[in-house]
Write a protein that binds this DNA or RNA. Structure first.
Length: 861
RNA sequence: GGAUGCUUAGCUCAGCGGGAGAGCAUCGCCCUUACAAGGCGGGGGUCACAGGUUCGAAACCUGUAGCAUCCACCA
């Protein structure tokens, strides 16, 4: 027997462990079933999981549990990501704080040992959180992006792409993070509008008295300047092109040149060129064969090229240099501007564009394959559709991917240089370290994540059982913020190496924000820890909240009251179940429903149950979880709890078959409700399920309710609707008349009950002290319904009744007018669907009849 | 400069071609034997604005305004 109050803590205890031990989460338990597979987006081993993870994984868990329930062999692969930069930064910070050492003090090997310790610690935390949330992942298949299998796959991919000419080493302008001291890819740079200054300097022209003005936001890069450019069509400067100008930073002479690239309208129309510290200037430098002069080092300090400014940080240098130029009289003016500045995603420092030798993936051929595939039948389907555009746009304009990182925590690049000859070899084999020196750098974390859906299934061994059975995966769930980082890269790697898209569908969700709609962040301190929420409301309430309040692709706010209301809802179901359980008794044996023995109210609730099953399944299949759960919510609250469950008390008070049938119906409906809510809230539904008679070992042994068309019964539903209408009228009548809801009334019906036992239900729901049926008309003070009337004796206030009749008259007239207008419209009759027209006609007739009796009644009052 | 999304009840949001919905808040009544973490009843919306398509538009199209977000090398 269930306790009176639903207590999440006791309900949740032990269930996860039991499921796990009994292998319910394991894929491949029944190979006769159709496979359905997913991979978890591997969380970073950098810390605790946040609400965003809870949302992402809850959606996946609902899918996994639902698919199992409808009969699939579900494999859901868990795992974690080593998260190169992020983890290394955290480990370094910890070492600094706790031991006062840097990674360089420990050396590569020593540092990696610490990093692995960190990994194990945080993996434990993450495992505990997964358990708490209830994720039904297959632990026997758990992977890590740095494990042996993934590492082998990474090497294989790197070497293959290298041999195909799709990976190359090159010297280009890359985004350099001077704090973490590593290269970054373009998408790891966050562009933000920052306040800055635009400095206008005077450049004297050698051999003339003339000068021109050049504007820059970055004076410190002037030590790397090799030219000044103007537009060849710019009349202001035409006569000066070809002359030398004096760089006011160091007094050096550099040429004034012309190139179409320069925008005449921007700034002064004259632009300084720093080929080693600006991507556009780099291109100009290449075009004109300039020297590439680096004047800023890896820590963003000035080097020897900066002369007396050497050793200053780029900002100190900027300040000092501007002062000096001003003192020399060459500063024209300083303007405030806001301009877009690149920041490192991880360290938030201003990224320094810098010439550097790095490894790159040649993106164009890979991207083209993606674009071609998206036009065919093997395309990846996005839910919602619009996100496909994000992928396509990015792929269309994508630049080569800088994949080398100057870190230690990651997959070391499998490139070796011969110590004697300098020969470069790229190979999967481990080379003799006495002869060959391996590249010091590691790969971008996303390089390994990109292989996740197939490498976790055993690839590159194409004969691996899991790979053969479960690849391509069925669906991927992830946030829109990592379509570039992850989704797109999985797609192109998968297409290149397996010839298939890695998943059929991608379900995109949004971000979870705080109650004010702000992004949750450490600096704002507005983050919500899912574990706190679970402590307070239980994990089922959190899961229900998350999935009932999210629309695919849209951001949502975390609102505490909504989690509370989710818990209330679960408490409601809990109590309904407690009631049903009490009614059934311990010796109840379930019987299948028999259409012939069902009473009118039984048939009506069963009809509604069937429609609910159908609608909920349809929404679940489309991954519209909030739609599905709100359909269910309405059924549970209105149709079951408020209506049928209350009405069942009448039949249960009797003895015999009617009572037994009612028990069967209560059992079936209750069980189906539990089975449908189960994917959302597995813990509480397991508890309720196990309290029902004739249960199996676990709710996970059950199948999803089936829609049975033969159990529909439109007439019963209509009869129920009239009964409910009458109940509502009486309640309303009491309320407006100032009577208490439970005030006693006497009821009379004429000329006959719509079905047997009608009056018992009316009595039960309206606190009637007596009830009778009369053949003759009831006179002035009665309520009217299609085919019969009802009177509340004694307490009736004619004025109130008249008010109600007038209101009825008004609504009916309005409805009739509406119907008549519709049906009188030749366009409607000609073009609307038949069913719609019939419906409308029936309504019109019914309303007309009712209106007539209302008018008669009013006249007789 | 491109692209996308949003604008619906006091608040947070669903709905996205056939009669305006939910949760919370609010007002009134009720400890009725599943549930007071509850029950019953009510109030509250020209669905941003302007055109158009349609028999029919909150929903589709076009434009306008405001607010978000993403992408982009303008020194």
């Amino acid at each position: 027997m269930l306790d009176k109050h639903y207590d999440p803590r006791t309900v949740e205890a032990g269930k996860y462990e039991k499921w796990k031990e009994n292998d319910y989460f394991k894929g491949g338990r029944d190979l006769s079933k159709k496979p359905f597979s997913m991979v978890i987006p591997p969380p970073n081993v950098t810390g605790k999981l946040h609400l965003g993870h809870a949302m992402d994984t809850t959606i996946e868990d609902i899918i996994a549990r639902y698919k199992r329930e409808v009969g699939y062999d579900v494999l859901w692969v868990p795992g974690m990501d080593h998260a190169g930069i992020a983890t290394q930064a955290k480990v370094e910070a910890k070492l600094r704080a706790e031991e006062g050492v840097s990674r360089f003090d420990l050396g590569r090997e020593g540092f990696l040992k610490k990093a692995w310790e960190w990994k194990h610690e945080y993996a434990d935390t993450i495992h505990a959180q997964w358990a708490k949330i209830g994720l039904s992942v297959d632990y026997s298949r758990e992977r890590f992006t740095l494990d042996e299998g993934l590492s082998a796959a990474v090497r294989h991919v790197f070497v293959t792409l290298y041999n195909e000419g799709l990976i190359y080493q090159g010297e280009k302008i890359i985004n350099w993070d001077p704090e973490l001291r590593t290269a970054l890819s373009n998408i790891e740079v966050i562009h933000r509008d920052d306040e800055g200054e635009f400095f206008y300097f005077q450049y004297d022209i050698v051999g003339t008295n003339e000068s021109l003005t050049v504007a820059t936001t970055r004076p410190e890069t002037m030590f790397g300047d090799t030219a000044v450019f103007v537009n060849p069509n710019d009349k202001k400067y035409k006569h000066l092109v070809g002359k030398m100008v004096i760089n006011p930073a160091n007094g050096e002479e550099i040429p004034l040149m012309a190139d179409e690239y320069v925008d005449i309208e921007f700034g002064t129309g004259a632009m300084k060129c720093t080929p080693a510290h600006d991507p556009n200037d780099f291109l100009l430098g290449k075009k004109y064969g300039f020297e590439f002069i680096k004047c800023i080092d890896e820590t963003a300090h000035m080097n020897e090229k900066a002369g007396k400014y050497q050793g200053m940080s780029r900002y100190e240098c900027r300040k000092a240099l501007v002062e000096d130029i001003k003192a020399a009289g060459k500063l024209i003016k300083i303007e405030k501007i806001t301009h877009s500045v690149g920041h490192s995603e991880r360290s938030d420092t201003v990224v320094e564009p810098m010439l550097s030798k790095q490894w790159f993936v040649r993106m164009k051929p890979l991207a083209e394959k993606v674009l071609a595939t998206q036009k065919g039948s093997d395309k990846v389907n996005f839910i919602p559709k619009r996100f496909e555009k994000v992928l396509i746009q990015w792929m269309s304009g994508v630049e080569d991917w800088c994949i080398s990182r100057q870190l230690w925590w990651g997959h070391r690049i499998p490139a070796y240089t011969n110590i004697k000859t300098g020969e470069l070899v790229v190979t999967e084999e481990a080379m003799d370290p006495t002869l060959w020196k391996q590249d010091e750098d590691v790969l971008d974390t996303w390089f390994s994540s990109a292989l996740w859906p197939f490498a976790t299934l055993g690839w590159p061994n194409e004969e691996a059982a899991d790979f053969k059975r479960y690849f391509p995966t069925s669906v991927l769930v992830t946030g829109y913020d990592i379509i570039f980082f992850w989704v797109s890269r999985m797609v192109f790697q998968s297409l290149h190496f397996t010839d298939k898209s890695p998943f059929h569908e991608v379900v995109i969700h949004g971000l979870i924000r705080d109650a004010q709609g702000r992004k949750m962040s450490k600096s704002l301190g507005n983050g919500v820890d899912p574990i706190d929420v679970i402590e307070k409301y239980g994990v089922d309430a959190l899961r229900y909240f998350i999935t009932n309040n999210t629309t695919p692709g849209m951001d949502m706010r975390y609102i505490d009251e909504k989690v509370a209301s989710a818990q209330n809802y679960l408490n409601k179901i809990w109590n309904a179940c407690r009631y049903v359980e009490g009614v059934l008794g311990e010796d109840y044996t379930p019987r299948p429903l028999n259409k012939k023995t069902l009473g009118v109210l039984d048939a009506a609730i069963v009809d509604k149950l069937m429609r609910t099953i159908k609608a909920v399944r349809a929404e679940m299949d489309k991954y519209h979880f909030s739609q599905a759960s709100s359909i269910l919510y309405n059924f549970v609250y209105d149709d079951f709890c408020s209506s049928y469950l209350e009405m069942s008390k009448v039949a249960l008070a009797k003895e015999g078959e009617e009572k037994e049938v009612t028990k069967d119906v209560l059992y079936t409906v209750m069980k189906d409700i539990i089975l449908m809510i189960y994917p959302y809230t597995p813990f509480v539904t397991e508890e309720m399920y196990l309290s029902l008679p004739a249960h199996k070992e676990s709710i996970m042994d059950e199948l999803y309710p089936e829609y049975d068309r033969t159990l529909l019964n439109k007439k019963a539903v209509e009869k129920l609707a009239i009964l409910e209408g009458m109940i509502k009228d009486i309640r309303n009548y009491k309320s407006t008349g100032g009577m208490a809801p439970n005030a006693k009334v006497k009821l009379v019906i004429s000329p006959a009950e719509p079905f047997k036992g009608y009056g018992d239900y009316l009595k039960r729901f309206t606190f009637a002290s007596s009830y009778e049926v009369k053949k003759e008309n009831l006179g002035g003070s009665s309520f009217l319904y299609p085919g019969f009337e009802m009177m509340v004796e004694e307490d009736v206030d004619p004025a109130l009744l008249k008010e109600k009749l007038l209101k009825d008259k008004e609504t009916l007239s309005f409805e009739i007018a509406r119907s008549e207008k519709m049906l009188g419209n030749p366009g409607f009759v000609a073009k609307a669907p038949k069913e719609k027209i019939e419906n409308e006609t029936q309504k019109l007739e019914k309303n007309k009849a009712l209106l007539e009796s209302v008018l008669n009644k009013l006249a007789s009052l």
